[in-house]
């Protein structure tokens, strides 16, 4: 297509490739031959199987921790006279009760209630003074 042939006109010194091949092989850097390390011989002593106590110990510790937590909750409830679930129910009831009371009460009723409380307190105070 180009019509100039395929000889580029390059040449090499005489015996270039023979000499190059030899020189190249001689100049190759040494490669580190990494020998695969032999696995260490297994020791003659046979390692004992772990004892039953060693195997069961973690489960026992876990069971003891759960038992401790359960006991602490029981003791806490005993001293408070109520248990947590009951308290939760109460809080829920109290909220419901407040909602029930407040729903049918006007502001006027509240003021009247406060006045009557104050009057009662004053009456009690008067009584104690006159005794």
């Amino acid at each position: 297509m180009i019509g100039l042939g395929k000889d580029p006109g390059f040449k090499v010194p005489e015996n270039y490739f023979e000499e190059f091949n030899k020189r190249m092989l001689d100049s190759l850097p040494e490669k580190e031959i990494t020998e695969v390390e032999k696995p260490q011989e297994q020791k003659a002593t046979v390692v004992d199987k772990p004892s039953m106590w060693v195997r069961v110990r973690p489960y026992l510790y876990m069971a003891a921790a759960f038992a401790g937590i359960f006991g602490m909750v029981k003791v806490f409830n005993m001293y408070n006279g109520t248990d947590i679930s009951e308290l939760a129910r109460g809080m829920d009831d109290e909220k419901n009760a407040e909602e029930l009371i407040m729903s049918g009460t006007s502001e006027y009723d509240i003021l009247n209630y406060e006045d009557s409380v104050m009057m009662d307190a004053a009456g009690e105070e008067l009584k104690s003074v006159t005794k």
Partner: peptide, 13 residues
């Protein structure tokens, strides 16, 4: 010294 091509070969290069 290691090129002995003629003018046409040089032009192609």
């Amino acid at each position: 010294e290691f090129f002995d091509g003629d003018a046409a070969q040089l032009k192609l290069q």
